[in-house]
């Protein structure tokens, strides 16, 4: 099987690159596109450090053959900070000390983004369930749960005014 040219919309921008047969989405992001926020922890779908959003849904990028998502929208942590400013999830992670070594952080933030997108007011159980596919070996998880709940609060507090401005 020859290599092929794959095109993805990554963080809102169309990107084209050559993918060797069997290249995963994770390897393509990291090696072909230089986007290294998504991490390779286990390469078998069990740790969640490689989580990115494909059409808004969290996917473990290490298990996705890149040609199967050709043409789709991929969002990585690099696309989260709008204009270099941290968004609510990122700033809540900072303020709530939800990161130590940081290896899990990119994946945790991406599942949190997806959760808050579909449910702006999640319960604690919803948050626990959302991150249950993501392994953290440092924090004991509690600060991460608190940070995501805090991010939801901040986003809800912000959106009414933003909508007003937009109108």
């Amino acid at each position: 099987m020859p290599s092929q040219i794959v095109s993805l919309v990554v963080n809102g921008e169309r990107r084209e690159f050559i993918a060797v047969p069997g290249a995963t989405l994770l390897a393509s992001l990291r090696e072909s596109l230089g986007l290294t926020a998504a991490k390779r922890g286990c390469a078998q779908g069990a740790c969640g450090t490689c989580t990115v959003l494909v059409d808004g849904r969290p996917e473990v990028a290490c298990l996705v053959a890149v040609e199967t998502v050709a043409g789709r929208e991929v969002r990585t942590l690099e696309g989260v900070a709008a204009g270099g400013e941290l968004d609510e999830v990122q700033s809540a992670f900072v303020d709530c000390f939800a990161t130590q070594c940081g290896f899990c952080t990119a994946g945790m933030i991406m599942v949190a983004e997806a959760l808050l997108e579909r449910d702006p007011d999640p319960s604690e159980e919803d948050v626990v369930e959302a991150i249950s596919g993501n392994v953290c070996r440092c924090t004991g998880y509690r600060p991460i749960v608190i940070a995501i709940l805090e991010a939801a609060r901040r986003r809800r507090a912000k959106s009414p005014q933003e909508e007003a401005v937009a109108r």
Partner: peptide
């Protein structure tokens, strides 16, 4: 042999501290 088999407490298994 891997993360799936080597269990550690997940976010639902943590005590109140």
């Amino acid at each position: 042999r891997d993360f799936a088999g080597y269990l550690m407490p997940g976010p639902a298994d943590i005590p109140v501290q």
